[in-house]
Design a protein around this nucleic acid. Structure first.
Lengths: 189, 189
DNA sequence: GGCCGCATGTAACACGTTACATGATTGG
DNA sequence: CCAATCATGTAACGTGTTACATGCGGCC
C-alpha cells in the first residue's frame, strides 16, 4: 500500500535499528543516534518521529499502543514488507557504498594552504590530539558494552580501523609538512 | 558586510575549491565535485550556482565579468574576508572532524542479519569486488594526474588508506561469517 | 511541591537534489 | 546544419535541523 520508492540513508538506517531492537519506541531509535559516537545524524526529534510515521504509512513498520503508567507511546516493529525493504536497501549496491566515504578532516586538510604557514602544524597537532582522545573514549565505551555481541564487536572494529587509519595519515601529513619547512622550496602562500 | 555565520560543509569546501583554482567559474567548481571519485556531493547546478552567489553576497568571493566568444560568465576569486573565513572554517575543530566519519557500507553491514543467511556472503563478495574495482580505477586516475602536486598526492593517499582499511575490514567480516556458519551456534533468524 | 530529565510531538527554516529551461559551441 | 555537449541558471520538492510546546515521572 503506498508505492515503493528506494529508501534514503536515514530511512534505511532507522529501519535497521527497529529491526534490531524491535519492538521499540521512536525514542529508543533516537537514542541509538544521539548515543552514537558518530555525529553525522543528529537523531533530533524532528527527524525521527516524522520519519517513523512515514515508515508506518508506507506499511514498512507497524505499531501497538503501549503505556508506562499514564504515559502513552507506541511500540514499533517491522512488517514482512519492512524486512524485505530493509534487505533490498542493504543489498542494492550503490556507488556511495563502493566509493570513498566523505571525511570532513580530509576536506579541511586539502585546503590547509589557506592557513598561515605557522598555524598549519599547530592545527594538525590539535586535531591529532582530539582524535586520540576520541579513540580512547571509544575504546573504553567499547569494552564497557561488549556484551559478547559478536556483531557489535565487528562494527566497532570497523569504525576504529577507519579512525586509526585517519590518525596515521594525519601523522604522514605532519611529517610531509615538517620536511617541507625544513628544506624550503618556493612556497605558494 | 553581511553577518558572519559559520560556513556549512559544502560552503567551506566550495570556498576551498575557489581558493585553490582562482580565478575560476562556477562550472569549474562543479566539475571538481562531479569529477571526484567521491559521490557524496552531487555538484549539481542547483547547489553550486546559488551557493556561489550567496558567497558573493556575503563578501567572501568577488567576480569579474569574463567572456569566451559571445558566451558570458564570471570569474570568481576569494576576497581577504573569504580567505579569513576559509581559514576559520578549517581551524575550528568540530566534533565531526574528530569523530568517525559516516560510512554507508558500515551501516549496511550492521544490519546484515536482515538478509537471508545464504545471501550474506554473496553480498559481501560483490561489495568487495566493487571496492577493489574502485581502488584500481582510483589508482590509475591518481597516476595519470600526479602532476608532481605533493598536496594532491597526500590527499589521494589519505583517501586510499581509508578505502583499503574498509576493504580489509570487509574481509574480516566475511571471515567471521564463514567461521560462524562452519561452527553454527544458535542463530537469530 | 517544584524542578529537571524523559518522551512525544510540531513548525519554521535552510539546504541540496532532481528536473527543467535556455543559449553557445563543437563535431559529424 | 543538426545533434550532442558545454555552461548558466531557476523552480519545485523532499528532508533534516533547530527551536518550540507539552505533559509525565522521579528526586530532593
Amino acid at each position: 500500500m503506498g508505492q515503493d520508492r528506494t529508501l534514503t540513508e536515514l530511512e534505511g538506517t532507522v529501519l535497521g535499528v527497529i529491526f534490531r531492537r524491535q519492538p521499540c519506541t521512536p525514542y529508543q531509535v533516537r537514542r541509538e543516534f544521539t548515543d552514537s559516537p558518530s555525529t553525522f545524524w543528529s537523531g533530533s526529534a524532528g527527524s525521527i518521529y516524522p520519519l517513523v510515521m512515514r515508515l508506518e504509512a508506507s506499511g514498512l513498520v507497524r505499531s501497538n499502543r503501549h503505556a508506562t503508567g499514564s504515559r502513552k507511546s507506541r511500540l514499533y516493529r517491522l512488517t514482512a514488507a519492512g524486512k524485505k525493504a530493509l534487505a533490498l536497501w542493504i543489498s542494492a549496491v550503490s556507488p556511495d557504498v563502493l566509493s570513498v566515504p566523505p571525511d570532513p578532516l580530509r576536506t579541511r586538510i586539502a585546503y590547509l594552504e589557506a592557513l598561515p604557514p605557522e598555524d598549519r602544524l599547530l592545527y594538525l597537532e590539535s586535531v591529532l590530539a582530539g582524535m586520540e582522545e576520541f579513540l580512547r573514549r571509544f575504546e573504553e565505551d567499547y569494552v564497557e558494552r561488549r556484551a559478547g555481541d559478536r556483531y557489535a564487536e565487528l562494527m566497532a572494529k570497523g569504525a576504529m580501523a577507519t579512525h586509526k587509519s585517519r590518525i596515521r595519515w594525519t601523522r604522514d601529513v605532519m611529517a610531509a609538512l615538517r620536511e617541507e619547512t625544513a628544506a624550503p622550496q618556493s612556497s605558494a602562500t
